[in-house]
Design a protein around this nucleic acid. Structure first.
Lengths: 176, 176
DNA sequence: GAAGATTGATGAATCAATCTTT
DNA sequence: AAAGATTGATTCATCAATCTTC
């Protein structure tokens, strides 16, 4: 039985790597390619769910940040800090949200360098509707057990920490 | 003690979500945002490692596929299938590798629709050097334990499977 | 008609360089 | 000089539409 019609790309890559270099980095290779692939699948899924609103997952994250913020508005720099993306990306993200009428730009009271992004009534509506959709879909991982999800988060937190990302411990979960 | 200078974006998002909607989807929210963030960190890290060669991780994957293939050449469609990306992306990827002199396009023997990508001597050199770099860096996750990496791969495999991705079981690892 | 590849569009991420304000 | 934001360039992903070949 050498024939196996549909191939698992990750298994195949591992097999070939081992065939050439021995088994040296196989666990890391598999883990990394798995992360890349799952992220790709998840992003596609979430973007499909959000498409009716004109949102992507990135836009959703930015919009949600504004929705949950004290005055329904934040400096762009703050958004970049929280989303951990470059200032350039924030400019583009807010441009898109502004085009949709979900956000407006405004001046900061005291510091004329900073611009404030504020969520509009239409933005609030979209944020709530989109949140409900994603909530009901359990963010695209509804078929995974809570145990798997928790374990996953723990391992990935350790990775983030080791990469220099700021990580809090004892983060609230459903079970605590 | 309400002050905590550096914030963990994922913990913060979880906290705010719970504050507004109760604890409903917290495990999935955390898992998904963690995957997104780690993928982002990893991609940045790997791209930095590969930059001296003119490669990105995507280009590296395509180049590696050619390097490991029987005749050092593959139809573009085959590459897309193995990398699980759209034909358009393959066109762009091969364009970039061709510009670097690592790959050349050629005709297929029997089917004039398909174009063949073949790795060049320079491409082979780059592939081997890049593979050694990534190998030594354990693909950017050198600080994670093999146990964490294996568990991670298992959970992500289940996710891929549930998402309809082809998944083989009993994939070779260091310990089997 | 379907398969293989390309082109043109959009979205999102990065970097380097620039501009204003502090 | 440093902080905040923007513009322009590049890379990678997607989709829709097109073109050639099967």
């Amino acid at each position: 039985m050498t024939l196996q019609a549909p191939r698992d790309p990750i298994a195949e890559a591992t097999r070939q790597w081992i065939g050439h270099w021995g088994k040296t980095p196989a666990p890391s290779l598999q883990a990394v390619t798995s992360i890349m692939r799952v992220q790709q699948i998840l992003t596609g899924h979430l973007n499909r769910l959000l498409k009716p609103f004109g949102l992507s997952f990135s836009r959703y994250e930015a919009l949600m940040l504004l929705y949950l913020s004290r005055n329904h508005s934040l400096p762009l720099s703050k958004i970049g800090e929280r989303l951990q993306v470059h200032p350039t990306s924030i400019t583009g993200l807010i441009d898109g949200l502004e085009r949709l009428g979900f956000v407006v730009r405004g001046p900061h009271e005291s510091d004329r360098r900073t611009t404030l992004a504020s969520i509009t009534p239409a933005g609030i509506e979209a944020a709530e509707a989109a949140a409900e959709i994603l909530n009901n879909a359990r963010f695209g991982v509804e078929k995974s057990s809570d145990e798997d999800l928790t374990t996953l988060t723990e391992i990935l937190s350790r990775m983030r920490e080791q990469a220099g990302d700021v990580v809090e411990h004892n983060v609230p979960t459903t079970s605590s």
